[in-house]
Amino acid sequence: MPNALRVHAALFLVSLIYAANYSLSKDVMPHYLSPFGIVTLRIVGATLFFAVAKYFAAPQDKITGRADAIRSILCGICGIGVNQLLFFSGLNLTSPINASLLQTFAPIVVVVASVFLLSEKITLPRALGILVGLIGAALLILSRDVQAAVYPQATRGNIYILLNATVFGIYLVIVTPLMRKYHAFTVLGRSFLVGAFIAVPFGWRDVLAANYGSFPPYIWAEVAYMIICLTILAYLLNNWALKYASPALLGVYIYLQPVLAVLIAVSLGKDQLTWGKAGQAVLIFLGVWLVSRKPKVAGMPQEE
């Protein structure tokens, strides 16, 4: 298989894994496992996996220096612990389509965070993109659609998802220097370990209290999916693809994930796509597209 085709296959599979999770998680929570219970199982499972993977793949690689140590702790807080607690708490309260659309807000946060943390300049198109994306997100968060009776706390759930996208966007900015300096398993092992210290106190009681004997086979399969595919496989594929994919290609798959999530949610009867949601999606997508455009440098061709 040519390398370009493998990159597309990896990115598509990652998008599909994330997209399916919005609907599959609805089967598991809150009846079988609470949101915090799911997060605890997921993070503990990934922590063990990456600890073993690091032992075999990069046994001598260690994060050194105070600055990198602090950065790795922040990665565990933003990218793993707080991120996952917010995501599953929000998904439990809102619809799959709302959650998938608000997740695409992360690239906008990356640009804003880069301005403050990396001193990047903000251009007029990017500023406009931030504004348009914020309007789309605000309309989606505050809207009351035909499923208001199914998700009476959707507004709170939408806010959690937006906060989740925000902390994840910050994580993407602060983790980049570590990924360039250390082995990926070293960074992920440390990040998930820190995330476990945050998540386990919230969810260990729910994990112990769950009635596992009542889990039908498909629930066991979906729990395994969230631990293995959503946490481990998706990261490994995404990390590999990022080495070869262009920014333009990554942008395509940012838009593909909510499209797949909508198709899966509607086909499984988990959600309904309305004209209002479609309009809000257009605003968010437009905002992401504007902030994702690289600013032109005088005398230099724009990179694609």
Rank of each mutant, 00 (worst) to 15 (best):
M1D: 12
V7L: 07
F12L: 14
S15Y: 02
I17V: 13
Y18E: 10
A20S: 15
S25Y: 07
K26G: 04
K26S: 07
V28N: 09
G37T: 02
G37F: 03
I38R: 08
I38T: 12
L41T: 01
G45W: 05
T47I: 01
F49N: 04
Y55Q: 15
F56D: 08
A58N: 07
A67G: 01
G76M: 03
C78L: 15
G81P: 08
V82M: 13
L85T: 08
G90V: 02
L93N: 02
P96L: 06
N98V: 00
A99D: 01
A99I: 03
S100M: 10
V112A: 14
F116M: 04
L118D: 09
I122T: 10
L124N: 02
P125S: 01
P125D: 05
V132M: 04
G133H: 01
L134K: 04
L134R: 02
L139Q: 12
I141E: 05
Y151W: 05
A154M: 11
A154K: 10
R156M: 14
N158R: 00
I159Q: 03
I161T: 13
Y171T: 02
K181V: 04
F185S: 15
T186V: 12
G189Y: 02
L193M: 15
L193F: 15
V194T: 14
V194C: 07
I198G: 08
I198K: 09
R205A: 13
R205E: 14
D206I: 00
N211H: 15
N211C: 07
P217G: 09
W220V: 10
A221I: 10
A224Q: 04
C229D: 08
C229Y: 08
I232L: 00
Y235H: 12
L237H: 06
Y244Q: 13
S246Y: 00
P247R: 07
L249V: 06
L256P: 14
P258I: 00
P258A: 07
V259T: 12
V262R: 04
L263S: 13
I264L: 04
A265P: 05
W275C: 11
G276L: 14
Q280A: 14
V282P: 07
L283K: 00
L286E: 03
V288E: 10
P295G: 04
K296E: 15
V297D: 05
P301M: 10
